[in-house]
Amino acid sequence: MKRILVVDDEPGIRSLYSSELEEEGYKVRLACDGEEAQRIVDSEDIDLVILDIKMQEKDGLAALSHIKRTRKDLPVILNSAYPTFKSDFQSWLADFYVVKSSNLNELKEKISQLLAI
């Protein structure tokens, strides 16, 4: 079973993603900031990361740099409420950029696309 790490400082988002993705058959691991995400990636077996950008502690872009330095092949989907970050060159490191939406179809599509490879 593929393990997905959901990183978001918003408990509601974590809860929604967890419920939806588990329903899709993934095992979901949760982190509430970049710091915690880095620790989990470094220590646990994670197949894909869904990463929020704006967070209270250590933002998503910094965490993304760390992940891509330490685990180059680990797919990361940036998931932000800010569409503008798309044009930030740091976000290019991510495999996909999905703007937060109540409709999770796009996110799910990208996940299955990345995990199918």
Partner: peptide, 12 residues
Amino acid sequence: NPMTIIGGFARS
């Protein structure tokens, strides 16, 4: 964020 949560759960 709140809209994603509300709408997401409603869809769910």
